[in-house]
Design a protein around this nucleic acid. Structure first.
Lengths: 153, 153
DNA sequence: GCATCGAGGTTGAAGCGTCAACCATCGGTA
DNA sequence: TACCGATGGTTGACGCTTCAACCTCGATGC
């Protein structure tokens, strides 16, 4: 094992691993409890609510939500069944599909937003200085960049 | 929404979210492909291999692996079925159970380790300076601390 | 001794994500 | 115009995680 992690890297890796294992679970739990939504369901609806005409093509939505197309398709199916989103075929390209947020979906996501933001703040940002936030963004962006390069979408 | 995230927090949150969504998926994929193990299965065996007499009580193992006891029990069952781990009742406390790494398990985890370390290095640490690594540890430890306080194990 | 409560652990059902196979459509090329 | 590869998307089966119910054992009070 010539290429082992040194001590500082070990510690950093354990801390990072704790975050990537626990944070998603906590977010999902809180959202599920407060709004009956999973984290991705919330995120997908939030992205749609910010998009022009509350609509986005599925592949673009998948990229923005950091999800595989297959996963996103399942999510949209679930949201569709609940009446929060509808599918629409694109008129100009027969392959493309749009997801469109319904009024009920917008109501739902707007109701969930304040609680979710509070959770994120409590779990992540409380206790971080402005400099910390900047560092966090720089480091995560660097790592995320390597993730995309390894498996380019 | 008086308590919204400001611009810098938004960006940091998006980057962090990308990491916590994609990194576990990549790690699992790489480990599954190279060694036929999931990330937790690997981690559980790695923790056992470092423990005295290659054994740990299930609840301690769960805490160290950042997993629920239920999840850990399922993982141990799978590893047991494959012959990598065995269960042992504690002699002094009839409730406690130990997981013990078998020889086959040790061979397996030692074979998987170099590739896994290389993956972690490629995805996380390549391109980070020593200072970055220190920052990463500090920030993640801070966040992880808040995660534990929110839902104390 | 005996009830009671809590800690440690297991189990089965239900929900979610991945993977691979598949279908439809578009763009280019001959 | 007819083919062919690439793009966009869907689906079903399988595996993993969670959740809730449950069981056993130890400690405590009486």
């Amino acid at each position: 094992m010539d290429n082992w992690l040194d001590d500082a890297e070990q510690r950093a890796w354990r801390s990072l691993a704790a975050v990537i294992l626990k944070l998603p679970a906590e977010l999902d739990q809180a959202l599920q409890r407060d709004a009956g939504l999973s984290h991705i369901e919330y995120w997908v609806m939030a992205l749609l609510s910010e998009a022009p005409h509350q609509r986005l093509q599925l592949s673009h939505l998948a990229a923005q939500a950091n999800a595989s197309l297959s996963r996103l398709s399942h999510v949209v199916t679930r949201l569709d069944r609940r009446g929060f989103v509808v599918r629409e075929r694109a008129p100009d390209d027969g392959r493309a599909t749009f997801a469109v947020l319904t009024d009920a979906g917008r109501v739902q996501v707007e109701a969930a937003a304040p609680g979710h933001v509070a959770t994120v703040r409590a779990l992540v940002f409380d206790g971080l200085s402005d400099q910390d936030v900047a560092d966090l963004e720089r480091l995560c962006a660097s790592i995320a960049g390597r993730l995309d390069r390894g498996r380019p979408v």
